[in-house]
């Protein structure tokens, strides 16, 4: 099970997130709420891959966004290295942001179409003020572009000129350029062709071995999650219904919902 729970890099405790569905007036008091996450606790250790599966609307993306600090929670706590993220000072929060990165489902949609690939990949370096000079930025970008298996000349192209698989590599390069400790992959390979999907999965595994990255791997594809993950979390309607190793969850599921999920995958 857990290697050592006190060592968790990222940890969520009893997270609840409500969304307002309907208000009385435009800025009136909320009339109807929707609970996207209900008392969810989560942790991930160094170098570990945790898979999050569930159907759409189960709250798996919301969980990812909350752990990554993109979304506030209604109640509960998120810790990065045992510090609560919204109680951090500016410096600590900066460090947290640097070390927790995202890869999204739609690589093109997550890039500014008017940016060249060079600028897309360099953006975290600039916003997080990691590099001091333009030369340093350039050399880091070129270095990273090569690491993810892209040609060097692609840095002067625009996202629209690249294929889906190439764009996903750019998204990985952008996440990796600050050498994060955790990458949250939200349906990172779902939009790719199957022949390209395997390349990206292998790349993620290689990079994990090289840099000891932890992945939170969110996907509806049970085959992919099973292959990638050490530990699995099954979510349904905002709650965690089952956790365990990939083998425990997918081959010997205990909960009805998990069984249904496994059976319906082809």
């Amino acid at each position: 099970m857990d290697k050592n729970s006190s060592q968790a890099i990222l940890k969520g405790e009893n997270i609840i997130r409500d969304f307002i569905v309907e208000r009385k007036a435009i800025i009136g008091t909320p009339k109807k709420m929707f609970r996207a996450l209900d008392d969810v606790s989560f942790e991930i250790n160094e170098g570990e891959t945790v898979g999050v599966v569930g159907e759409s609307g189960s709250g798996k993306s919301t969980l990812g966004e909350i752990l990554g600090g993109l979304l506030k929670y209604s109640s509960g706590k998120v810790f990065y290295k045992s510090k609560e993220i919204f109680k951090m000072n500016k410096e600590e929060f900066h460090n947290y942001r640097k070390n927790v990165q995202f890869i999204f489902q739609d690589p093109k949609g997550s890039m500014n179409p008017h940016f060249k690939i060079r600028d897309v990949v360099a953006e975290p370096l600039i916003t997080l003020k990691i590099c001091s000079s333009q030369e340093e930025i350039d050399s880091k970008v070129v270095d990273m572009i090569k690491k993810v298996g892209l040609e060097e000349d692609s840095i002067d192209k625009y996202p629209g000129e690249l294929s889906g698989g190439q764009c996903q590599r750019v998204a990985i390069a952008r996440a990796l350029i600050v050498y994060p400790e955790v990458i949250i992959c939200d349906e990172a390979v779902s939009a790719l062709d199957v022949s390209v999907q395997a390349q990206i999965l292998n790349l993620l595994i290689d990079l994990q071995a090289q840099f000891n990255i932890s992945y939170i791997f969110i996907s509806h594809d049970i085959g992919v999650v099973n292959y990638m993950s050490d530990r699995i979390i099954v979510m349904n309607r905002g709650e965690i219904v089952e956790t365990g190793t990939a083998e425990e969850v997918f081959f010997y599921p205990k909960e009805e919902y998990t069984k249904k999920l496994v059976e319906s995958s082809f």
């Binding site: 199957v194 022949s195 390349q199």
Partner: peptide, 21 residues
């Protein structure tokens, strides 16, 4: 071979098809 299914062994490397469509 390229599609990860539940039958795949976890230490086995996914076979990939080089290049793009």
């Amino acid at each position: 071979k390229v599609i990860p299914s539940l039958n795949i062994k976890k230490d086995e490397r996914l076979q990939e098809i080089k290049g793009n469509v």
